[in-house]
C-alpha cells in the first residue's frame, strides 16, 4: 500500500479526539446531514420497528475491536475502515451486537481492559516500552487476544516484540487443518492470500501459552487490507475481499471461543 492510497482513505474521514482520561481516538465517516423531513420519517419508522419487537438487549455487551496505538514510528492508524467493516459483518452474519467504530487504544491506557481483543497493523517499526510489555503480558494472561496483521515490513519488529513478551515461547506456524481455518468458513488451504507483497506464501503464526492461543500474527496475507472499503485497494476484487472477511470472522469466532 502506498502513501497516496492511504491518504485517499483518511481524507474523507473526520478525526475525533476523545478527551479526558483516555487517549482513545476514533475515525467517524464524514456524512452529509440528512434533511429534516427525511430524518423525521426515519425516526418514526425506527420507533415503529422497535415497538413491535420484544424488549431485548440489543445494546448489551457490544463488540469493539480497537487497534493498538503503538510507538516506534510505524503507521498504526492504517486501514481505518477495516475493523468497522468486520464488526458490521459480525453483526449481520453472526447477530452480535457491535459498536462498528474505528477505535484506537494505547497499551498504557487504563481503558485497555475494556477490550478482550485487540488488532494491530501497519508498515514498519514497532516499539513497546518496558512498562507496556508488562501491561500487555498481564492483559494477555488475563484472557486477552492480540491479532497482528502485517501490512508490510513489520516482521522483524513484530518478532522482536513478541520475543520480549514471551522469551521462552516460540511462534508456531498454524497447519492448514487448524481449527481457526474451519470455524464459520472453511479454508482447506489454510490462510488465504489477500495481498501480494514479496511473493512469499502466507503464514499464520501463533503464540500458545497455557493451552490458549494468545497472539495470532498473519504474515504475507494482509487480511486487514482486504477488510477495507471497496475501492481503497483497486486490486482487491469482491471475491478477495469476501475471502478476507471470512478469514477475519473465523479469527474473531476463534478468539471468542478459547
Amino acid at each position: 500500500m502506498n502513501k497516496n492510497n492511504r491518504k485517499a482513505v483518511i481524507e474523507p474521514m473526520q478525526w475525533v479526539e476523545m478527551t479526558g482520561q483516555t487517549e482513545t481516538v476514533r475515525f467517524v465517516p464524514a456524512q452529509r446531514t440528512p434533511s429534516l423531513p427525511f430524518s423525521f420519517c426515519i425516526m418514526i419508522l425506527a420507533i415503529l420497528l422497535l415497538s413491535v419487537q420484544p424488549a431485548g438487549a440489543q445494546d448489551f455487551d457490544r463488540l469493539v475491536i480497537p487497534r493498538i496505538k503503538y510507538g516506534g514510528g510505524g503507521d498504526w492508524y492504517v486501514g481505518p475502515t477495516a475493523m468497522p467493516n468486520l464488526l458490521r459483518q459480525a453483526n449481520e452474519r453472526l447477530g452480535l451486537p457491535v459498536q462498528a467504530e474505528n477505535v484506537a487504544v494505547s497499551v498504557s491506557d487504563q481503558e485497555l481492559y475494556r477490550y478482550p481483543m485487540l488488532f494491530m497493523t501497519g508498515h514498519g517499526q514497532i516499539k513497546f516500552k518496558d512498562q507496556e510489555i508488562n501491561t500487555l503480558l498481564t492483559w494477555l494472561d488475563n484472557g486477552g487476544f492480540l491479532w497482528i496483521n502485517d501490512s508490510y515490513g513489520m516482521e522483524k519488529y513484530v518478532k522482536r516484540e513478541i520475543r520480549r513478551l514471551y522469551p521462552d515461547i516460540d511462534l508456531v506456524a498454524l497447519p492448514k487443518d487448524h481449527a481457526i481455518f474451519n470455524q464459520l468458513y472453511e479454508f482447506p488451504d489454510g490462510l488465504p492470500k489477500i495481498h501480494e507483497h514479496d511473493g512469499r506464501p502466507p503464514v499464520a503464526y501463533a503464540i500458545f501459552d497455557k493451552g490458549r492461543m494468545k497472539i495470532l500474527y498473519l504474515l504475507e496475507s494482509d487480511v486487514g487490507d482486504g477488510l477495507e472499503d471497496a475501492g481503497v485497494h483497486p486490486a482487491d476484487t469482491p471475491e478477495i475481499r469476501e475471502k478476507a472477511m471470512q478469514m477475519a470472522l473465523n479469527i474473531l469466532i476463534y478468539a471468542m471461543n478459547q
Binding site: A179, Q183, L184, G211, I253, Y254
Partner: peptide
C-alpha cells in the same frame, strides 16, 4: 462448549481448544 454460529453451523470447544465447525 457448543456455540451456534449459524443455524447450520456450530463450533465446539473442548478444554479451551476450539474444534472445526
Amino acid at each position: 462448549a457448543w456455540t451456534r454460529l449459524k443455524d447450520d453451523r456450530w463450533v465446539c470447544n473442548r478444554e479451551l481448544k476450539p474444534q472445526a465447525g
